[in-house]
Each structure stands twice: as structure tokens, then as C-alpha cells.
């Protein structure tokens, strides 16, 4: 069965880019435009991995990460952001990987493969 990835980002352009690129790699992709929406989707659908933007209006990525890890302990979360200093934020330690946003998605795809591979 295809693995399902939930992409959480407030930028529409980036959501679509991630969707197309990750679908090309053979994954199914679900999209959420906000932290609140992502939690709703996680309740309804079966998700294998979450790709989470940190800086979002409303509920930010750090808060989403906390709630996800409380409820779905084993669900892997990859944090994406432009700001390297979040690495030192206690709230982000629970994430499974930390990716600095880039237009080159090679590192991101590689990280997803590694995490999903380990899970099997």
C-alpha cells in the first residue's frame, strides 16, 4: 500500500509543489493549510508521515508537533523551516528530522525515504 504524507504549510504555492514532487516519488499526499486543519485531517485519515512548516499564522508548527506527539507517539514528523535557530528550541526536539527549506527537494525526499524505510 502507498504511504500517505500530510503536508502542512500556509503557502499555497509550496503545498502544491510538495504534492506534485512527492507524488512523483510514489507517495500519496494530503494537504493542510494550517495547524488546526492538519489536526482535523490526522483524526480522520490514516497518515504515515507529517511534513510540518514551523512558521504559520494561528497554531504554529511547534504547537502542532506537541499535540501530534501527545496523541500519535509513533507518527514521524519532519519539521521544515527557514530558521536554523529552531534547532535549539526544546519544543522541536521531539521531531524525527529537521529540514531547512530549500527549492532543492533532494534532501527532503531522501529524509522521507529513510524515515519511512525504518518504519517498515
Amino acid at each position: 500500500m502507498k504511504k500517505r504524507i500530510l503536508v502542512v504549510d500556509d503557502e499555497e504555492g509550496l503545498r502544491l509543489l510538495y504534492k506534485e514532487e512527492l507524488e512523483d516519488e510514489g507517495w500519496e499526499v494530503d494537504l493542510a493549510a494550517s495547524g488546526e486543519e492538519s489536526l482535523e485531517k490526522l483524526e480522520k485519515d490514516s497518515i504515515d508521515l507529517v511534513l510540518l512548516d514551523i512558521k504559520m499564522p494561528g497554531m504554529d508548527g511547534v504547537e502542532v508537533l506537541r499535540r501530534v506527539k501527545e496523541k500519535w507517539k509513533d507518527l514521524p514528523v519532519i519539521l521544515c523551516t527557514a530558521y536554523p535557530h529552531y534547532k535549539h528550541d526544546f519544543g522541536t526536539w521531539a521531531s524525527d528530522a529537521y529540514i531547512t527549506k530549500s527549492s532543492d527537494l533532494t534532501e527532503l525526499k531522501q529524509t522521507i525515504k529513510e524515515i519511512l524505510g525504518k518504519k517498515q
Binding site: G13, L14, K101, S103, D104, L105
Partner: peptide, 13 residues
């Protein structure tokens, strides 16, 4: 940065 990442990503596609 964000729109730029979209631009770069779509250009690569």
C-alpha cells in the same frame, strides 16, 4: 523566501 522556494521548485519540475 517562500514564494522563491515555489519558483525554484516549479522551475526544477
Amino acid at each position: 523566501r517562500n514564494p522563491l522556494l515555489s519558483l525554484g521548485g516549479y522551475a526544477a519540475r
